[in-house]
Design a protein around this nucleic acid. Structure first.
Lengths: 339, 339
DNA sequence: ATTCGTTGTGTAATCGATTACAGGGACAGT
DNA sequence: ACTGTCCCTGTAATCGATTACACAACGAAT
């Protein structure tokens, strides 16, 4: 490997000068610069970034910790991260935890080892306190998840409001019995969505029936199962709100299997607005999260921290949007009913 | 930051000894080892991987170059990569080219700069010759794409055979006019699929009608458009084979919009078997690619090259599988027809 | 003429871990 | 007693780029 000293020798200058040419810092005469550039070209020199990073003790790399890269929601977030990172000359190390807490903890070590300058945490199995602690020790931004009263920089949507609006929309359509297919009860983000659902019902004076809240785990299968449980009830709801699009699609499948039509017999509302939601039939009404922007903003904040700049705001809430498509409609009047 | 020399001082040994304890190489007495471990613990020492990587001139990192992380096919491949990399103590740098040839070239530089020990190339906009050249200069494995007669290690499926079998299946169902929604004509992988389609028709003595081959660009929209063009023809086919699942779903949508039923009025076959294919209605018959295995094997090969081991085989073809689901069936007899 | 700021370049220390090499002690075999 | 092998440990060079510091040349300002 040809190194900087080889270039220096060839150009009859010192390595300091070569370094100055490369970094564009400090004074170098036009003439010397050309000599150096020529030598670099002739020798085919490529700087050794390992040496440079070591000396500058910065890897110019950030670590993206996500639960599962095959989840379209997260892959969109990562896409946003990657784009901005590249623009600012940083690289992204992929940390797919496969939902494992231990892997998550291990990955954080990479920052301590200086392999990454900072971390985007898009999953949060660790506790509130642990995150606070980590955030004090290393540059860290939490994306997508939101923790109440946390002091760590965070970017997310307002899950409570989003879920409330989605539920409210169904109520406004005329639905009075609305089921909820929720994610895991122990996830904060999911609890926020449940909260929003409850709030909407309460504001409208509708009863919250606990049996209408069925737990899933974000997957399509769990959505199917949850829907089946709901369909086995005596008094059916006229609408279902699922806390993820995958689960909503599962609900769709379950409904079709039982011969029920959407939205005629049952309205279905999803959450996230992944591309899938426009591919199913009928197209899914859902809550759009600005996935890419979530990633972009998270990494912008992180890089600002890394580079020692001040953040204007540490808790950023991005706007969501209701996407009304074909899977929701007013409830059909009961057979032989109407007024 | 506490460094190795601090640990050495505290434990009353040399840095060489500390290094030996950490690397588990060379002789260290049990007693000394404990002293060192204790000092490490007391001081809260974390090795500086930047220094270590520099000295060993290895980053223990591989670069995954993919066209688009939000494409579910590639995110599965990456998942496989990541898993095996982690198992073997490597990290994965994400290189999302956004389909740009220049970005692809820039990314390769990272290996020259020693930021990555090797590259998995899961997209190939660069030419055959360029890849050959790169492959001679740095550890490189091509995943998913296949180049005829290339000397670079490659892992992929046999796209020709896979497409032939899919088409053959449709023929065996009784279809005689089969349309093809292809990807971009200039992509090798796609040309292989077209070739397989042609072969199947020819083997069965069926005519290849060029107008039945419509170009798309892998996206759902392009699939819809291609299907619309096909449906505007005088003599309709009874089946369509799309070179990607997204395009097949687009075809599905286009058919539904025109009021045609699948598979009764038209059979639809996809390619890839991404999770989407089980979420649409009817579920998509498709060709399964072993996505995760593709990634796993590619990185295994790469790491073997990086670590100087010999590869048993440099060109690996993984098995594909026809997944027959609800979107394909024998053609309906023509109205008033049948014998 | 002196001082000062700007420009241009070189010398050499430095970042922190790894490792080649040397050396010493213990022990076995002859 | 001598030689050879293990063990165990330390000294110091090394990886390649960056950068603090020194210095020199030049022109402008006083």
């Amino acid at each position: 490997m040809v190194k900087m000293s080889d270039v220096a020798k060839r150009a009859n200058v010192s390595t300091a000068t070569v370094s100055r040419v490369l970094s564009k810092e400090g004074y170098v005469s036009e003439e010397t610069r050309n000599k150096v550039l020529k030598a670099i070209d002739v020798l085919g020199y490529t700087p050794n970034r390992l040496a440079s990073n070591f000396r500058k003790s910065s890897s110019h790399t950030v670590l993206a910790i996500i639960p599962d890269i095959t989840n379209p929601f997260f892959s969109e977030v990562v896409k946003g991260l990657e784009k901005v990172a590249a623009e600012r000359g940083y690289h992204v190390l992929l940390g797919d935890t496969g939902n494992s807490l231990n892997v998550e903890r291990d990955l954080m070590e990479l920052v301590r080892e200086q392999l990454a300058d900072g971390v985007i945490l898009a999953t949060a199995r660790v506790t509130n306190e642990e995150i606070e602690k980590l955030g004090r020790e290393l540059p860290l931004v939490v994306a997508c998840e939101y923790f109440d009263g946390i002091s760590i920089p965070t970017v997310s949507i307002d899950n409570v409001v989003a879920a409330r609006e989605a539920t409210q929309y169904l109520i406004d359509c005329g639905h009075r019995r609305i089921a909820l297919i929720s994610g895991r009860f122990n996830i904060v983000l999911n609890r926020d969505r449940i909260r929003g659902y409850r709030q909407a019902l309460e504001y409208s004076g509708l009863p919250v029936q606990e049996s209408l809240i069925q737990e899933g785990d974000w997957t399509m299968e769990s959505g199917m199962n949850a829907m089946s449980r709901i369909l086995a009830m005596d008094q059916l709801p006229t609408a279902v709100f699922a806390a993820s699009d995958e689960m909503a699609v599962g609900a769709l499948k379950s409904l079709k299997a039982k011969g029920l039509r959407v939205p005629n017999d049952m309205s279905v509302m999803g959450f996230d607005d992944i591309s899938l939601s426009e591919m199913v039939e009928p197209e899914l009404s859902t809550v759009r999260q600005p996935k890419r922007e979530l990633g972009e903003l998270a990494i912008r904040m992180l890089l600002n921290i890394v580079e020692g700049k001040k953040l204007e705001r540490t808790q950023v809430i991005l706007p969501h949007r209701l996407m009304i498509r074909g899977s929701t409609a007013p409830p059909s009047p009961p057979h032989g009913g109407g007024r």
